[in-house]
Nucleic acid binder design. Structure first.
Lengths: 245, 245
DNA sequence: AAAATATATTGATGTAGATCAATTATAACT
DNA sequence: AGTTATAATTGATCTACATCAATATATTTT
């Protein structure tokens, strides 16, 4: 039972188009020519604001849709036979989510809003058909998946080899970079996820995340007030991240 | 400087074709019709036996080729600015490697033989062109990448949440399954990688891998003699892997 | 075959982070 | 505003694994 966007009573499709979306430079739509936009608009639907905690698709659902974050943020997480829950990624405006369902035809994870968010949705089959005729779109999809693989391989290294401080530094600098790419401040931002969620993503407990956070604060590398982060010493944060332990 | 296969003096292209390869059921070639094989043969080159330790491509190389393992086995690993080395995967006959280079155009990791191996190689650009005209090949490539993402997301959970015994159980059962798929025994096989390499992959030290191994042996779950493994109690190994810790 | 080198095992000890527990801060609800 | 529930911090203790060190076993070299 896929809970696709337009099945929500509060999430009907409203008058929005990829062609007039200011996000297109970040989104897969960015590689299309203006003339090709109308066709994209026929396969993309756009949600209105979804509240925090909304599950866009669940582990075990049959795979049908891919999503692009328009505003807000998303987490993906998998669970285990033993009930262990692992956050596998955080996603921000422009990010394309859900391609990992292709291999088995089953959604391998949960996709959930971290805060009030709007998202765009497409049937994967239709996107794939479109891409068959558009080499640039085809390549873009491959690039997105390839990038996902690289990101996860990097996270494997982080989880396997880095201590708590380095993991948190890696995390904060990655967020900083992603916010910067989206035109926001790279040094001052709000964490849309809880300490527990950061811990799940980084393979740490809440307590360890909290302690690592206050340590960064005490060392005057960041200022942290609840979810608000200010990076005050980028160089030190990078040194910590890249230190040979 | 890409060290592609046919640049090796000892690895000249020999008379081999995808069309007469007994591996095709496991390989991407498996989804093509007989009539399409000749075209695949024009873009695939086949190495002769490469010795252990041969590096097929290096982190930082410009991305050009993808590889399929024909015989033997392969490891991929990345390194860090701080010199940390992380094995990101082990690959066996039929496995397609290298698609993670698409996003940046740079090979993000090293690809190296674990033992004497033969491999098949294709220019990615040519494979991509071919796939443009063959929906099934296009879909197959997407499936391979999607599977890679799922595998890595699963490894993230293993590294973030599982203890040494569970990690080793996960590893051994995964190998068992992959060998079975390839027509080999699922209960008796040879580990082509060292304890150190297993440790790198699982985020553990050699010592911990060794201890976890002897513990499995003492509990009569496996018999291990150097690199030879016999799984004597699958149920116990599964229970260990899936245990809620 | 002997020497040298690399790999694996086993033991002793130290430590980062988990766990348990208590307190404080924040958000949600009535 | 006051009550309840949730999230975050901080402290005390415990433990699994890393680290250091010593053999032991393979593998390679001469």
């Amino acid at each position: 039972m896929n809970k696709n966007v337009d099945s929500y009573s509060y999430a009907s499709i409203i008058e929005q188009h990829c062609s007039n979306c200011n996000l297109s430079s970040l989104c897969i739509a960015g590689i299309l020519e203006n003339a090709e936009m109308p066709r994209l608009d026929t396969i993309m639907s756009h949600s209105k604001a979804l509240p925090k905690g909304e599950i866009l698709s669940s582990q075990g659902d049959s795979f049908q849709f891919v999503f692009v974050v328009k505003t807000g943020s998303i987490k993906t997480y998998t669970t285990d036979v033993s009930g262990q829950e692992q956050i596998t990624g955080f996603y921000f405006p422009g990010d394309l989510i859900g391609l990992n369902g292709i291999s088995s035809g089953i959604c391998p994870d949960f996709v959930e809003t971290l805060e009030t968010s709007t998202i765009c949705q497409s049937s994967f089959e239709q996107l794939d058909k479109f891409s068959a005729e558009h080499p640039k779109l085809r390549r873009k999809i491959l690039k997105v998946m390839s990038k996902d693989i690289c990101n996860e391989q990097h996270m494997l290294l982080v989880l396997a080899k880095k201590d708590a401080g380095q993991r948190l530094a890696t995390f904060l600098l990655s967020l900083s970079c992603r916010f910067k790419t989206r035109g926001f401040s790279e040094s001052r931002f709000r964490l849309p996820m809880s300490r527990r969620e950061i811990g799940s993503y980084l393979g740490l407990t809440v307590e360890t995340v909290s302690r690592a956070m206050t340590r960064l604060h005490k060392n005057n590398i960041i200022v942290i007030d609840q979810k608000e982060v200010v990076i005050t010493d980028f160089a030190a944060l990078v040194t910590l991240r890249d230190g040979s332990k």
